[in-house]
Each structure stands twice: as structure tokens, then as C-alpha cells.
């Protein structure tokens, strides 16, 4: 790992350099203190102070709707598997979102591999941006150590006043630094400042929930039959916003979309949600997660329990999106506290 510096006066130039030959995606402001990732062409459009966006960057890795196959049935069931790609830079990814992308990478690289995902992701360049302080009170990133960079980026920017400390994590990142000619070598003072910021951050960011990392999975194992799930179920509207907003949720459906001649069309992958009524219903009419509470329990276990067994990872990044988006105010931290309280 090696670092360089980027003076803030050069940031404008960096965006200019990036947009020259690829699409640049960054957080942009909406109303009411909300943000979303969108294509930008200038620095002015970018929100450098964005809290986690309404939809996470997974919308580029796993689009809400994408074509898996093109088909043509004029002579039998003919098809061609395909993926849409575009050279893209994702700029301004916070550490929580980088962690989310790492989770998705793991899932889709796991055998049997999902080549559509794997091919597409190679066309992305990821530039992270450190949070010096909390985005807001919904976040629980420190509890999962996701307030600090843990790889998963090409370049990573840390705001140190007049300049960004830039961690170069990949050859791709290195090439970008070299070609743009906007970066300068690291100084000892900058190294020093980075250390200082990280120290300050250890004071600012404290585990948001009174539980140790290693006790999280056991907590969920112990509370499968908990009343907390029934309570949450009574509030939940099963709208699925919590899963669509979650950077590590990836459930999907597969549907065909014919053209008007009915012989040609596409087989699409579209986002689905385990919160929907019919998600686990089978042809006999049996529904394996009938109650809203069952489905919420499933969502939480898919973050904090099952992936620990399969991928040795917790699949919550701590971004707080599920809590922010839920109009029934089902709040991740409150749920944890209720479970902890009950298990005491």
C-alpha cells in the first residue's frame, strides 16, 4: 500500500479527468437532506458531505432490472446470455458502502459463480471517501468496524484539511494517479495528520450497540423464538424498502419480457424482497414465511447470523439505511437493544 496527496484545489481537475473517458457516478443532493448516486460531469454536482444515499451503490453492481438472456423463438428456444457493461467510476463511496460491495462480491463469486455480476464489476473503478464523523444517528458502522477502510477500493480519499490523503490499493488506482498527474507525494506531516484523524475517530466512533462483534451471531441464535419478532411484525408494512435500501440484500426474481411479436424478448433479473407476502409461497399454497414477523426475523438473520456461517462475515455494513427508510420506524439499533434486553 502506498499513498499520495491530492490538494482540494485539484479535485475539480480529477473529476474533469475522469469524465473524459468514462461515466462518473457520485452522490448528489435531493431535498430533505437526502442523497442519491447519479451520473455527474462536474465537481459542483457532487455532495461531498452525503449521508448514505437512498439506494446503495449495489444498483450499479446488481441493477434493479437487467437482461440475463436475449431470446428468439422463431426457430426453437434460441438464446444468447448477455451483460450490459460500461466503464464507470464510482466516486465518494463511504467505508460502509465499500463493505457492502465486498459482501456482494463474495456472494456472486461463490460457486456456482454469477458471471453476469463478475464481468460487470470488472468495469468499475471505486474511489472511496472517509467519514471523519458520523453521517447521522441511524448509523451503526463502528459496531462492525466499518467506519474504517478495509480495502475493496482502487483509491481511498481521507479529508485532512487542505488536501486528501489518498491510499492507492490497486494497480488500476495507481495508473489513474499516474495518468492524471494531479497527485503529489506524501509528506511526513500528512502521515502524521492521518494518524491523528484516526485517533480522533476512535473517540468519535464507539460501538453504537452494547454488544461485542463475536456475541452478535449467538444473540440471533438465541432469539429465534423471541417476541421481538412478533412486535416488529405488528408494525411492519412489508413494503420491502428495508431490503431494497440495504447494500447487502440481493434477493431477486427472474421474469420474461416479450416484445409485441411474442417471439423475441429478454429474460430479466429484477430485485425482489424477502419481505413480500409471496416470496416463499409454493404451488400448494403453503407459505414458509407467512407472518411479517417471520420475514423480519429472516432479514435480520440474513445480516447477522446465516452469512457468518456461510461467508464468515456479518452482512450488515452499519449504513443505517434500513432504519432511515422505514416509515414504521423499525430501527436496527432498537431491535438489537430489545433482543439484548430480552436475552439478559
Amino acid at each position: 500500500m502506498s499513498g499520495v496527496l491530492l490538494y482540494k484545489s485539484e479535485l475539480c481537475g480529477l473529476i474533469h479527468f475522469l469524465v473524459a473517458d468514462q461515466t462518473v457516478i457520485a452522490p448528489v443532493p435531493l431535498t430533505h437532506g437526502q442523497f442519491k448516486f447519479a451520473a455527474v460531469t462536474t465537481l459542483e454536482e457532487i455532495a461531498l458531505d452525503a449521508i448514505p444515499t437512498l439506494l446503495p451503490p449495489k444498483k450499479y453492481f446488481l441493477p434493479p432490472q437487467e437482461s440475463l438472456l436475449q431470446y428468439d423463438t422463431t426457430q426453437g428456444e434460441k438464446m444468447q446470455a448477455e451483460v450490459a457493461i460500461e466503464e464507470t467510476v464510482l466516486f465518494g463511496l463511504h467505508t460502509c458502502d465499500l463493505a457492502g460491495i465486498q459482501c456482494l462480491d463474495m456472494v456472486f463469486a461463490d460457486r456456482p459463480k454469477d458471471l453476469h455480476y463478475m464481468i460487470r464489476k470488472q468495469h468499475f473503478t471505486l474511489i472511496g471517501l472517509e467519514c471523519n464523523d458520523y453521517c447521522d444517528s441511524s448509523a451503526n458502522c463502528a459496531m462492525l468496524f466499518n467506519h474504517l477502510p478495509k480495502g475493496g477500493y482502487d483509491l481511498f480519499l481521507t479529508d485532512l484539511g487542505d488536501y486528501y490523503f489518498v491510499d492507492i490499493n490497486t494497480h488500476k488506482g495507481d495508473l489513474l494517479v499516474e495518468k492524471s498527474g494531479l497527485f503529489v507525494p506524501v509528506t511526513p506531516a500528512a502521515q502524521d495528520n492521518l494518524q491523528k484523524l484516526r485517533q480522533i475517530k476512535t473517540k468519535r466512533f464507539k460501538s453504537e450497540i452494547p454488544i461485542r462483534y463475536q456475541d452478535i451471531k449467538p444473540l440471533f441464535e438465541a432469539s429465534f423464538e423471541s417476541n421481538v419478532w412478533t412486535d416488529i411484525g405488528a408494525k411492519c408494512l412489508a413494503c420491502g424498502n428495508c431490503t431494497n435500501a440495504c447494500p447487502t440484500c440481493y434477493c431477486f426474481d427472474i421474469v420474461d419480457e416479450p416484445e409485441f411479436d411474442l417471439t423475441r424478448g429478454k429474460r430479466l433479473r429484477i430485485w425482489d424482497s424477502c419481505q413480500h407476502e409471496n416470496f416463499a409461497r409454493i404451488a400448494g399454497g403453503e407459505n414458509f414465511r407467512k407472518e411479517r414477523g417471520d420475514r423480519q426475523r429472516h432479514r435480520y438473520n440474513r445480516k447477522f447470523h446465516y452469512p457468518m456461517e456461510r461467508y464468515k462475515q456479518i452482512f450488515c455494513t452499519g449504513c443505517g439505511r434500513c432504519s432511515r427508510t422505514c416509515m414504521a420506524r423499525i430501527d436496527l439499533k432498537e431491535t438489537f437493544n430489545a433482543l439484548i434486553e430480552e436475552c439478559r
Binding site: L69, V83, K113, L115, H116, I119, R267
Partner: peptide, 8 residues
């Protein structure tokens, strides 16, 4: 672009 050996 075409995907060879796609799982789908």
C-alpha cells in the same frame, strides 16, 4: 457483451 457459460 455475450456471457459464455452463464448459469442462466
Amino acid at each position: 457483451i455475450a456471457v459464455r457459460n452463464s448459469g442462466y
